[in-house]
């Protein structure tokens, strides 16, 4: 029983970070109708930005997070303006190709800049843990989870309570109607892509203390982001939270009780089932 709780706890903590990746992808899909194939690479950009600040400025990786988020947001806005805005009316495969291209360019730029060797950072808390009864918590993952909760809460407030949030939700519901109401949907698209990139970069920074960073790991996380968004319902931001937690727990339970070499397959199987049986996601109202 203790072991089971421990596994679920680990799953929930990882799932929180998955949720952050998924929320960004879901926002982008909801507003821009773009399936972003570069999303995992954005996460890797976040990892290496953190690494850069950590090694050059010797600042704690969790302290540079605001900077990383800022860099991600700006990169996202610039990419959207120059590469995605021009093809906004093109058929959907154009945006898929474009994001594949962006992903290739970004990951290879990272390869030139940081080299081919997997990199890791060592902090005081990389390996430290704390205990609650018989359950062990990794300190780094705990900090990551707390930050995740704060960020998701803040984002929910922005979406629900501010004018910006209302324009984003309006643009997601019906871009033309939003435009008629005087919302600058072009600006909303740029901002949403910026927010998506920033969230992915944040997830990268949060995962860095426990993972090897390598320029080529992007696609793995792109897939995870797809799984999370489909579980939660494409374009459904609140659903992405549930999707992320579900993926985290499924992976860690499957790895522990069935087979760890099939770890990634459990998420994909759930993904395919949800896609076929409930295309609007587990938590979405099915639309006809």
């Amino acid at each position: 029983m203790v072991q089971f709780v421990q596994i679920v706890v680990n799953g929930v903590f990882t799932g929180g970070v998955y949720a952050i990746i998924g929320i960004g992808l879901s926002l982008i899909f909801g507003v821009m109708r773009i399936v972003n194939f570069a999303h995992g690479v954005f996460l890797v950009v976040g990892m290496f930005t953190t690494l850069f600040f950590f090694e050059r400025l010797h600042v704690d990786p969790f302290l540079v997070i605001p900077l990383v988020v800022l860099v991600g947001g700006l990169l996202g806005i610039v990419l959207e303006r120059f590469l995605l805005e021009p093809i906004v009316r093109a058929p959907e495969h154009a945006s898929i190709l474009m994001t594949v291209g962006i992903g290739l360019v970004l990951s290879n730029l990272l390869l030139f800049a940081f080299g081919d060797a997997p990199q890791i950072i060592n902090t005081r808390y990389s390996t430290s843990t704390w205990h609650l009864g018989p359950i062990t918590f990794s300190t780094a993952l705990t900090i990551a989870f707390v930050l995740t909760v704060v960020v998701i809460g803040g984002l929910a407030l922005i979406l629900e309570r501010t004018d910006l949030g209302r324009s984003i939700r309006a643009a997601a519901q019906n871009a033309d109607a939003a435009e008629l109401q005087g919302i600058n949907t072009r600006r909303v698209r740029s901002l949403v892509f910026g927010i998506g990139f920033a969230l992915a970069a944040l997830a990268g920074a949060l995962l860095l203390p426990q993972l090897f960073a390598h320029p080529s790991i992007g696609p793995t996380y792109t897939l995870k982001a797809f799984v999370v968004t489909v579980l939660g319902g494409m374009g459904n931001v609140a659903g992405a939270i549930g999707g992320g937690l579900l993926l985290g727990v499924t992976e860690s339970l499957g790895a522990a009780y069935v087979s760890s070499s099939y770890r990634d397959a459990f998420g994909l199987a759930a993904f395919l089932l949800v896609l076929l049986l409930r295309p609007a996601g587990l938590f979405g109202r099915s639309r006809t």
Binding site: I96, M234, D264, L268, L275, L276, P279
Partner: peptide, 22 residues
């Protein structure tokens, strides 16, 4: 999977292929 349209079909195809690879 052909009841899925647009990007959903593309996503399902990725899932099938990745599971086959695993």
């Amino acid at each position: 999977t052909f009841r899925l349209r647009g990007p959903y079909f593309a996503l399902a195809s990725i899932a099938v292929a990745e599971m086959t690879r695993i």
